[in-house]
């Protein structure tokens, strides 16, 4: 269910959020953000902190890259192509490089800003910030927004919902892994193996959400 292309109404935004967070879950459907999913998630509070940090950076990165694409570099993926509003030329071949630099820069600035002005927030998820520069989920959001050519409101909704979906998946996984530590797992499957198989079962469960918007 994709509602990115339809007219902007409250119900379409709600559908967009539902489909992004649950049906096309970033981790379980698109496989992005798998690294922290396998590596970091062991305790629920850690997973929640990580999820919050990712959602936060994702939203900021999505808004920044959308703005840059719209005003400067342009987007060749929408029908007929859309050159940058201020430059008037199609610089979309620079998009990938620009996006990854914006993400790396944004993470640094967010970290500094939070440490200075919101120490409470920083202590909640600041430590995860440096880890997520190379989190593919962040770049993935920016790319999807470019490829689908969404408007600004949908961009924000998509990024927040994507982060929400990531948080849901990683938190569920953390809860399961707390239990898995006490389970008798065959030696070769310990670690990544069993995590992937559990993720497969989770993905199967999440497939039940498909068609929810119909």
């Amino acid at each position: 269910m994709n509602t990115l292309a339809t007219d902007l109404t409250v119900s379409s935004i709600i559908l967009l959020i539902l489909s992004t967070a649950l049906i096309n879950n970033f981790v379980l459907h698109y496989f992005v953000g798998i690294c922290p999913f396998i590596g970091v998630s062991r305790r629920i509070d850690t997973a929640l902190g990580m999820g919050m940090a990712v959602t936060f950076v994702m939203t900021i990165a999505a808004i920044l890259t959308k703005t840059i694409t719209y005003f400067i570099t342009g987007n060749a993926n929408v029908d007929g192509g859309a050159p940058g509003l201020l430059t008037g030329t199609d610089l979309s071949f620079l998009n990938y490089t620009v996006y990854i630099l914006v993400i790396a820069g944004a993470v640094q600035f967010v970290e500094m800003y939070l440490r200075k002005f919101f120490p409470a927030l920083y202590s909640a998820f600041g430590v995860y910030l440096p880890l997520i520069t190379t989190n593919c989920a962040i770049l993935f959001v920016c790319l999807m927004i470019m490829m689908k050519g969404t408007g600004f409101v949908e961009t924000i909704a998509y990024a927040v919902a994507g982060g929400l979906g990531f948080t849901i998946a990683i938190s569920i996984m953390a809860g399961i892994r707390e239990e898995l530590d006490h389970a008798d797992i065959p030696e070769p499957l310990k670690g990544a193996g069993i995590t992937l198989i559990v993720a497969g079962i989770l993905a199967l469960a999440f497939m039940g959400f498909t068609g929810i918007g119909q």
Binding site: P188, I194, A199, G200, A203
Partner: peptide, 19 residues
């Protein structure tokens, strides 16, 4: 061919490799 299949296959092959 769907996402769950990817997770299962990789999980089991990873286990086999470790074994």
């Amino acid at each position: 061919a769907l996402p769950p299949g990817a997770f299962f296959t990789l999980g089991i092959l990873l286990g086999l490799a470790n074994w």
